[in-house]
Amino acid sequence: MDWLTILTTTVHAAIGWETVVYGLAAIGVNIHFGYTGLLNFGQAAFMAVAGYGLAVSVTVMNLPFWIGILVGLAAAAVLALLLGIPTLQLRADYLAIVTIAAAEIVRLVFRSVYFKDIFGGSDGRRGFNTDFYAMNPYPPGRYGIGPFGFGERTMWLLTVGWIVVLLCCLVVYLLMKSPWGRVLKAIREDEDAVRALGKNVFAYKMQSLMLGGIIGCFGGFFYGLYNGSVQPDVFGTEMTFFAYTIVILGGAARVFGPVVGAMIFWVLFVFIGNTLAELVANGYIPFMSTIQVGPIRYALVGLGFILLLVVRPQGIFGDKREIAIDAR
């Protein structure tokens, strides 16, 4: 058993790129679901259009990096409009179905042979992060303590990533303390009541959808920048549901909930996955093969998600009182 590897990968996971990517996705979902009560099950699509917006602009259209970022952001905003206009006036479950369908459409289009010249088929696009790493102020080397540490490229990505995460948290904090955030929370409780108080509910929902989508879209950027590539199948529905798990784990409608949730989620996910893999590899679990570790790890996420919602819907740090009076 290689406990040291398990330990280091686990510690790395707590602040690693997955936590940044999924933390950002979850901050977006938290705005949608936690604060506004919108069931956006297509967060992965926002991340996908962002990642592809950047990748296609840079690799196919030869545009500068920053334009690529702008294209990605604009794509997410347009997607929010496209999804929101037909569904935000309808009942909650319609938004859920439409967003999950839209995410699937986005994925299928990106992986199609028909659009291969643009999106690169199931192989995706690569080679758009050179400009990002060209800005790296860290000299080459390894940064860390003892067995824990990152190379200069990862350091740079994590530095920018965590700054963006904290900025997003600050924005959420400011907004949710303001009258604007109050309207969102009120919409979550009962949108008719909010309408009866003279607020344009549709406009607020649209703003919420857009804001959450755009924050999630930064997650898409960092995914692409870390991995150096974007592939369509990464942005499947699982990605969205991981983000939901993270939000509920950390406690919905809490500013730092998604960040803490992402840390806990990835620590557990990596720890359980690696431990299982090691146990299987060393023959401690005879009835399982190494390929089966993947599914069982995901199954455990599902199980954990169910248990969390049934037993502690307020999340690990949530306020029981808030859930107890929840009429729904």
């Binding site: 929370k185 009120a186 909010v194 808030e322 009076i325 929840d326």
Partner: peptide, 12 residues
């Protein structure tokens, strides 16, 4: 609006 305080309800 259940999960808003009474005062927040009013301010809204």
């Amino acid at each position: 609006l259940s999960r808003l305080t009474v005062l927040e309800n009013m301010r809204l």
